[in-house]
């Protein structure tokens, strides 16, 4: 039995593509009360506005015997409501406003995609803590520091106030600056990195290829590892050193900012 999608709100032209998800539209208290007993883990609830979010919570008979599934909110929510939502839903995907969630047509395509775990659907940025939370098509989240988006070589800086998700969840846009979702997941989701590298590692086993990729990712030259010569690093990367000393690995890991056992996974 496949998972159900419930859309809380009135059917509108803007959101008509949710019908492609075989969505059940819930506009009234009665609709919501009839849907709640049918809901189960894996179902998706899409709520179009703060107004309908409050409507949903009022319609529930508390305490709930079980959570209803996952939630995607297409509007900015009041902070005070968040904890109540955590008692109703497993995963909660939020947005700052309409721009930080994928447009409806692309959102539906991602939710139907077999690679939805690798595509972002919404996100919020907190400049005070210098973090960004991104939600994927499977509604799981990942937290990324804003420092992950350095200026490009052309001097383009991200403009956090102009955050959008585009290209079916494959691109994060911050004004004139674009980042690939792949690059973000590769750096901050070890499961994603391991999955992608599984086949490649079979071909390119060992510390060297991982060290080279990670060093490039960090924008470091081989001569920027105090205590190690550039020649030594080149030999490791090219697989010419079969047994790398623990001290060397610790220097590499320290400079690269990762646990020593993770270098190979990059």
């Amino acid at each position: 039995m496949s998972n159900a999608t419930f859309v809380v709100g009135r059917k509108s032209r803007k959101h008509q593509r949710f019908s492609d998800l075989n969505a059940v539209w819930l506009a009234s208290t009665g609709d919501i009360r009839r849907a709640v007993p049918q809901a189960r883990k894996g179902d998706l609830w899409i709520v179009s506005s703060q107004h309908y979010m409050e409507h949903l919570l009022r319609a529930i008979d508390w305490p709930l015997p079980k959570r209803l599934g996952d939630l995607l909110v297409l509007d900015t929510l009041r902070y005070a409501i968040i904890e109540a939502l955590h008692s109703v839903f497993y995963h909660i995907a939020l947005t700052d406003d309409n721009r930080t969630v994928l447009p409806c047509e692309q959102l539906v395509a991602v939710l139907l995609s077999d690679k939805k775990r690798d595509l972002f659907i919404s996100g919020v940025i907190d400049e005070t803590s210098e973090t960004m939370t991104l939600w994927r098509g499977d509604r799981t989240s990942i937290v990324v520091p804003l420092s992950a988006f350095p200026p490009s070589g052309l001097g383009v800086h991200p403009d956090w106030s102009r955050f959008e998700i585009t290209d079916f969840g494959q691109t994060l846009q911050f004004g004139d600056y674009q980042a690939s979702s792949d690059a973000v997941l590769y750096e901050f989701d070890i499961e994603y990195r391991r999955r992608l590298n599984h086949a490649r590692r079979n071909k390119e086993k060992g510390l060297g290829p991982g060290l080279r990729r990670l060093r490039k990712q960090r924008g470091l030259r081989r001569d920027q590892f105090p205590g190690l010569s550039a020649k030594t690093i080149a030999r490791i990367e090219q697989g010419e050193v079969t047994r790398v000393q623990t001290r060397t690995i610790n220097i590499l890991a320290g400079k690269l900012g990762v646990p020593s056992e993770e270098i190979e996974s990059y």
Binding site: F149, P151, T171, Q178, A179, S180, A183, Y186, R213, G219
Partner: peptide, 8 residues
């Protein structure tokens, strides 16, 4: 080519 790609 985006401003932030996997480099290698």
């Amino acid at each position: 080519i985006r401003d932030r790609e996997r480099l290698e």
